[in-house]
Amino acid sequence: MPDTITLQVTRYRPDADGPPTLQEYVVPLREEWAVLDGLNYIKDQLDGTLSFRWSCRMGICGSCGMTVNGDPALTCGTFLTDYAPGPVRVEPLANFPVIRDLVVEIDDFMRKLPEVKPWLVREDGEALDDVEFLQTPAEMDEYKQYSMCINCMLCYAACPVYGLEPDFLGPAAIALAQRYNLDSRDQGAHQRLDVLATAEGIWACTYVGECTTACPKGVDPAGAIQRYKLTAATRTLRSFLMPWRAR
């Protein structure tokens, strides 16, 4: 194994002219080093002007997502040795405006997320704090997979529909809506229907399926969307045929 590897890192300075460029850095290649460790080595030893986000280094905070050799990835969970002998291209997440170097603007996702009410909605007036909700393991299994989402937005970077149509609600927001729709304690499914069953919601999705491939937590947003299409379509049909039962 060679003892160094070259990283080609996107540099973008908003105050300077011109589009982003790639800059090469040679960093030590260690067995236990993730791409993020390489970036931190650059920042600490080679070039303190490089900007990027990270926090937990253990695949939990969802802030270190970047494009590694063309694929969206959590840089704290992507190991340099897998790319030896290199070089490794490290670029900002695709489909998002770039603020500086590897830092992207996430305002769009932060605006969309609360629209789907990703929290327990109760309509029977019971205050959530006052009651205890019991749930069987089977009921929990219904939504558990979707609750693994860490809001890393890799699925948005992988989704060509989002790239082409920035109004698209997007994979994670819809998967998180399903996380609560399928929760036996939640009563907000029909409120979310109005946000989800729109041209910018599930109907914008053409099932490319790349969000599921990109997701580091096994959430399967593509499946969540597909499943919700059937739910929304049958509900719509029912409100056509039996308008008196529609909510």
């Binding site: 946000v195 729109t198 919601g201």
Partner: peptide, 17 residues
């Protein structure tokens, strides 16, 4: 905000069938 679209729902059902 966008409105719930029943035409898309019907179009999708027919597409699937």
């Amino acid at each position: 905000m966008a409105k719930r679209s029943s035409s898309e729902a019907v179009a999708w059902l027919l597409f699937s069938a």
